[in-house]
């Protein structure tokens, strides 16, 4: 019918807009890669991640988007961690892309090597990704990563941040938030859980290297995530994306709540979504429905103790972190004023 195309051009409102993966009312070009029948499913069925694993989801989102952006000419190097172990326990693999694993700490260096090899072979159509967990990124692989940034090697590094060493039984990493319970930061004593005022932000450190592109993304916001991955693939040189990926096992959350929790991390200000080019922030994803941090924390057993009367200051400290993020990145709609 002609009516359909006419009204589609004129009417700007699409029921769920781009908040859902696809939506039959949207033109093809506005749907996510994940909404298409021919997405590459780079990370396929049969992997052994826990029920509701945010990392498995984030990896398929990101790599499928990168595959689309590079016309399927992609090689990935993977650090040790859940993502490596649950996808590729010898002799099987869930990856349907060229994929290489070496060590826990050297994925950035391996990827730099692959990029150099591709350059030597004149294969400028082939693009390289390195990926790993937060432990592999912020701690053990940090030296290699900084070197890769420093040399501006042509690699996109993706960190799947689940805020601890999950694969070995939930030990603290330098990406574990204050107060969080891990196997090595138990909720005992006067200051239960992980210490505040420790840890680091690798996205900000990456920006300090003045590399072409840095971004944070979340499994809750698929369109935003895919946009950032494809944008990253439009640059050459070192690039870094950190994706917030809730871990039901390590966070003590319901498997079905993974996306809900990721959404609350963003909507509370705990995980700010932004992008930066050559060291400067160029864009932020505004909070759509601002919530107090308690809404985010209460769905996770790793934070259960912060709701005890005697730990009220921990809850306040976490709220202060969220508030600082909101201010620092100007996350509320219309310039900081809440509706």
């Amino acid at each position: 019918m002609t009516q359909i195309s006419e009204t589609k051009q004129k009417v700007k409102f699409y029921q769920t807009g781009t908040l859902t993966a696809g939506n039959r009312l949207l033109e093809e070009g506005h749907r996510s890669v994940q909404a298409t029948v021919d997405r590459s499913n780079s990370l396929d069925c049969g992997h052994r991640a826990c029920q509701g694993c945010g990392e498995a989801l984030g990896a398929r989102f990101a790599i499928d988007a990168a595959m689309r952006a590079t016309n399927n000419q992609l090689i990935a190097a993977n650090a040790t961690g859940c993502l490596e172990v649950f996808t590729t326990p010898y002799p099987e693999t869930a990856w349907s892309i060229p994929w290489i694993h070496s060590l826990f700490g050297n994925a950035p260096a391996v990827a730099s090597g692959i990029a150099a090899a591709m350059k030597a072979k004149g294969r400028d159509d082939v693009r390289v990704i390195a990926q790993g967990g937060d432990g592999g990124t912020t701690d053990i692989g940090f030296g290699c990563l900084s070197g890769m940034f420093d040399r501006n090697d042509d690699v996109l590094y993706i960190c799947y941040n689940n805020e601890a060493y999950m694969n070995t039984g939930v030990q603290r990493s330098s990406a574990t938030p204050g107060a969080a319970r891990t196997a090595t930061t138990m909720p005992v004593g006067p200051e239960p859980g992980n210490d505040f005022a420790t840890g680091k932000s690798v996205p900000l450190i990456a920006m300090a290297h003045q590399i072409p592109y840095v971004a944070t993304a979340s499994v809750h916001d698929l369109h935003d995530l895919e946009h950032k991955v494809s944008k990253a693939m439009s640059f050459h040189g070192a690039r870094y994306i950190e994706i917030s990926v809730p871990c039901p096992l390590g966070w003590g959350s319901k498997p079905g709540d993974t996306i809900k929790i990721a959404r609350l991390a963003v909507q509370t200000g705990m995980f700010p979504l932004f992008e930066a080019e050559n060291g400067d922030v160029t864009g932020v994803t505004k909070i759509r429905q601002h919530q107090p941090v308690g809404e985010y924390l209460k769905l996770q057993r790793r934070f259960a103790h912060v709701f005890k009367k005697e730990n009220e200051d921990q809850l306040q400290a976490l709220q202060a972190i969220a508030d600082r993020n909101i201010k620092r990145f100007n996350l509320l709609p219309s310039g900081g004023e809440e509706e």
């Binding site: 029921q15 696809g22 994940q34």
Partner: peptide, 26 residues
Amino acid sequence: VFEARRCMSCGNCFECDNCYGVCPDN
């Protein structure tokens, strides 16, 4: 059309592709 699109299609799949998108196990 605008008004019709405000409908949330309660309880009936309207092909937003979300389930297909969010499954960690494909």
